[in-house]
């Protein structure tokens, strides 16, 4: 028996918004410690890794490990039926071929349940090594979304260049060039407004706008985003999900001309 009850059901709705453009389907690996999801986009250029710890749920039961393959377009349709203040429970029997979503309104006057068929997915599970990154940049997530959106008008790629002075985002194309420089903030009233740069060595990498823009669909999950870069390895874009976990996107850099 698997059962996970989330009082802040809106978080699950936001998680869905954060992955559904990138992924058509994904396996939810449910274990005693929580729920993990790892999946590549269709073109295998990026990877999504979602971690929801059991402690973040107000009720969590997983008697045996369960892999639930879900069509995310179907799951999204179902989660759209939940109100933002609903409590959401996901549950499934062991070896079941369906999962049930239960939505409870805060005062319990409306309770809905939706059963969805599971699908068998044969997905590669990739090993992500623990890495010390050369540059770790924290910035407000809305600022990052704005930068990606603005620079996408200029070209298909964004160059991210991190030095000890700060971080520079650049794009170039037919209409011209654009550069946005963010300096590390000295003092801020709110930590979530800060720009912080932790640099061991300067790094400049180029990434496809299309994917960065899809990652920014996670912006409502967290006021801050963390970008980690090292030479010639995938960028990590991480959004914390309150006290429950995180979503990380990995994106292969663009190389050559």
């Amino acid at each position: 028996m698997f059962e996970a009850r989330l009082v802040q059901g809106a978080l699950l709705k936001k998680v869905m918004e954060a992955i559904k453009e990138l992924l058509n389907e994904a396996s939810f690996d449910c274990a005693h410690s929580g729920i993990l999801l790892q999946a590549m986009d269709n073109s295998h250029v990026s990877l999504v890794s979602l971690n929801l710890r059991r402690e973040g749920f107000d009720k969590y039961r997983c008697d045996r490990n369960l892999v639930m393959g879900m069509n995310l377009s179907s799951m999204s349709k179902i989660l759209k039926c939940a109100s933002n203040d609903d409590i959401i429970t996901m549950k499934a029997q062991d070896n079941a071929d369906t999962v049930t979503f239960v939505f409870e309104s805060p005062k319990q006057e409306k309770i809905s349940d939706y059963e969805m068929k599971l699908t068998n997915l044969d997905q590669d599970h990739l090993g992500i090594p623990e890495t010390e990154y050369s540059c770790v940049i924290k910035l407000p997530s809305a600022e990052f979304a704005r930068i990606c959106r603005d620079l996408s008008q200029f070209g298909e790629s964004i160059v991210i260049s991190c030095t000890k002075e700060g971080v520079k985002f650049s794009a170039a194309g037919d209409i011209g060039t654009a550069n946005i420089k963010l300096a590390q903030t000295a003092t801020v009233d709110k930590e979530e407004d800060a720009v912080m740069v932790d640099m061991q060595e300067p790094v400049t990498l180029t990434f496809a706008c299309k994917y960065l823009n899809m990652f920014t669909k996670a912006t409502p999950l967290s006021p801050q985003v963390c970008l980690s870069m090292s030479p010639d390895v995938p960028l990590v874009v991480e959004y914390k999900i309150e006290d429950i976990g995180h979503i990380r996107y990995y994106l292969a850099p663009r190389i050559g001309d």
Partner: peptide
């Protein structure tokens, strides 16, 4: 510009 598969960086486990 070319782009390698993410599988080049992270091997199947």
């Amino acid at each position: 510009m070319a782009q390698k598969s993410i599988k080049v960086y992270f091997k199947p486990s």
